[in-house]
């Protein structure tokens, strides 16, 4: 009997932890807190594989972000192949406003993020520009729809629904959030007719310096299974102080001019 009691205690503790309910807002806050940094720079490869031929298209990406107060900017710039080199998507977020930004095309084209542009594939991948711009966790309708263990990891299923009239292709986004990692390990986006549009899976979860968790690979599987895209981080730096100029049209033009023979 003596050995049973501690076991029961452990079991009870486990249940208690499991029972520690998170609300939808708490889950989102956990993720946002964990991601907060003054500035970051990530090198990544975007690899799209066609299911039929197995042909791979690689795009080298530089992703940079900076935060000033509650406002944040993220820059996604293509480094390679030559056809898209220099092209960049700049996303700007301010609290209380819809996400804005522009698409830069060398030498000096700057296009606003129209609905047509948002629907376009991101550098030929299975991601759309909207996938990088739209922040579904800031939609007003968020609810915890249940819990599920994914690969042995306890996850909350969060359902996010866009407000009526929002400029989005999706009607529902489900995220499987592991509260202990403060990370979504799977996201499913649904079309208006209820079909799954695409699924995002986080792979190679690594504990970073400072105890933060990050996924070094995200696999994007669109409905239909004709292709898939892997976004793979090759290097990452955090807590940088990046000048605001780098996120402007002028900055992009200047850096490109300096980097070309």
């Amino acid at each position: 009997m003596r050995s049973v009691r501690p076991l029961c205690a452990v079991g009870a503790l486990g249940l208690a932890a499991w029972a520690a309910q998170y609300t939808a807002d708490q889950l989102i806050a956990r993720i946002m807190d964990a991601q907060k940094t003054s500035g970051f720079r990530t090198r990544a490869r975007l690899i799209r594989t066609s299911a039929g031929t197995g042909a791979e298209e690689v795009t080298q990406l530089l992703i940079k972000g900076r935060r000033e107060g509650e406002a944040a900017e993220v820059l996604y710039q293509a480094l390679w192949p030559p056809a898209v080199r220099g092209q960049a998507l700049v996303v700007q977020r301010r609290p209380g406003h819809a996400a804005g930004g522009f698409f830069y095309e060398p030498p000096d084209s700057r296009r606003p993020l129209t609905a047509e542009l948002l629907a376009r594939p991101f550098f030929g991948s299975d991601l759309s520009v909207e996938d990088l711009v739209e922040e579904f966790w800031s939609w007003p309708s968020q609810r915890v729809a249940g819990r599920e263990a994914l690969e042995g990891r306890a996850c909350y299923i969060l359902e996010s629904r866009p407000p009526a009239g929002a400029a989005t292709a999706y009607s529902l986004v489900k995220s499987w959030i592991a509260p202990d990692l403060a990370l979504p390990v799977r996201i499913e986006k649904y079309f208006r007719d209820g079909r799954v549009a695409k699924r995002f899976t986080a792979e190679r979860l690594l504990k970073q310096a400072g105890g933060r968790w990050a996924a070094a690979r995200v696999v994007v599987s669109p409905a239909g299974g004709h292709s898939r895209t892997v976004l793979e981080g090759t290097k990452s730096e955090r807590d940088l102080l990046l000048p605001a100029e780098q996120f402007t049209l002028e900055g992009l033009k200047n850096s490109l001019a300096a980097a070309t023979p």
Partner: peptide, 11 residues
């Protein structure tokens, strides 16, 4: 030929 290293393009 041209080789792209990060943001830079080199001959």
């Amino acid at each position: 030929s041209t080789v792209v290293v990060e943001t830079g393009e080199y001959t």
